[in-house]
Amino acid sequence: MMAVVIGFTSCQKDDQPTPAPVASNDFLVNGSAVGAFDLFGFEVGGRVPNTDSVTNRWDFGMRFERIIVNSGASGRGNAGVQVVNQPFDAVTVAPETGYAFDTSATQLAVKPEQWYVYNATTRSFSPIAGRTFIFRTANNKFAKMEILTALPADDNGNLVTPPTRPTRIKYQLRFAFQSNGRNF
């Protein structure tokens, strides 16, 4: 499966000099450790309804602090991801290889320690500054993304502070989608 995917990737045409527009988006996701993932598609530029979960419209999903990608055990797409220690702006080209996939429900492409630290004192988690996600999307396009904030919120997206228990996590995302090639 892996070999097929990588082989397929390398057949892509790339290095087209079309700049990828940078967008920001608030993404409100399920704040509990169980239940459905909320889905995000780069081509759409935002949320993808869960009714589309067996399509290639979504690229990654989030639930609380867990991230899945649309591949392997999680979806029917070809999405893969790698997390690099480089600021968003410094990532100018998506690598051809090196993408990880959701091989099983417990072996997900994104490991927690790659992108956040948990603070036991505040019981909050902080996205690590300078970590950039580079996605190969479900449809074999490329995108890069930075998680700017992860804040506890209620169902309407209003931020909450203790003792109010958050039902959602409000992520602020910055991303660029390249529909043509690997350059950003």
């Binding site: 220690n85 600021p87 968003f88 690590i128 500054a129 300078g130 970590r131 700017l148 904030t149 602020q172």
Partner: peptide
């Protein structure tokens, strides 16, 4: 030069 930070919540990462 491997560590980044944000100058305020939600700001882009800076070296």
């Amino acid at each position: 030069g491997e560590v980044f930070g944000r100058d305020r919540e939600g700001a882009p990462a800076r070296l």
